[in-house]
């Protein structure tokens, strides 16, 4: 009887661990990692549940890490002074957000609000720093992937800025001709 009780508890923990590992594998930050390393990362993640309408974090508050949507729908909402809140995007299962907070404590750039009942997997800066100290190879691999993601995003932002500049100069030229 007792054995089956313990077996059940461990089975549930194992299942949870496997679910987290599967979800982590789908995230670009971790998809280069081996199974063993994914299991190590899974051990230091936090599982959080949110009710519809509940905030995951608030714009302007110090960031502490990233979240992966395990279940449900999360909206990213930007608050501008004297304007209605502006929804930037909806994130669903497998999507991730807040990863820049893994690098430093700078304030969150938008609110994250649960739209439905959500289960999120949290991976936070203190745990990443701890990982870097204990298993530097694994920590460095995660940081390298994070740098790639941030670099790619910076390049795409640069391209967008370039495009906007070109469009703006064309508009200026058009105005001068007329």
């Amino acid at each position: 009887m007792r054995d089956s009780l313990w077996a059940n508890i461990f089975k549930r923990e194992d299942q949870m661990q496997r679910t987290i590992v599967d979800r982590l594998r789908g995230v670009p930050l971790f998809n280069e990692l081996r199974e063993k390393d994914l299991a190590r990362i899974a051990q230091i993640t936090h599982i959080r549940t949110y009710e519809p309408g509940e905030s995951v974090f608030f714009q302007g508050e110090p960031g502490v890490g990233m979240y992966i949507v395990e279940q449900g729908l999360v909206s990213i909402v930007l608050n501008l002074p004297d304007e209605e809140p502006h929804k930037l995007t909806d994130l669903e299962e497998g999507d991730f957000f807040g990863e820049l907070a893994l690098l430093d404590e700078s304030p969150r750039s938008a609110d994250a609000v649960a739209q439905t009942s959500c289960t999120l997997i949290g991976f936070f800066r203190p745990d990443l720093l701890d990982l870097l100290e204990r298993i530097p190879k694994l920590g460095a691999r995660v940081i390298l992937e994070l740098s790639r993601i941030v670099g790619a995003r910076l390049r795409s932002s640069n391209d967008e800025v370039q495009q906007l500049k070109i469009q703006l100069s064309r508009l200026d030229e058009g105005n001068e001709i007329t």
């Binding site: 936090h46 959080r48 949110y50 509940e54 905030s55 995951v56 974090f57 508050e61 110090p62 960031g63 502490v64 890490g65 404590e105 936070f124 203190p126």
Partner: peptide, 10 residues
């Protein structure tokens, strides 16, 4: 609770 989670962790 969720409202204090990031605060506590940090």
């Amino acid at each position: 609770p969720n409202r204090f989670f990031e605060l506590s962790l940090n």
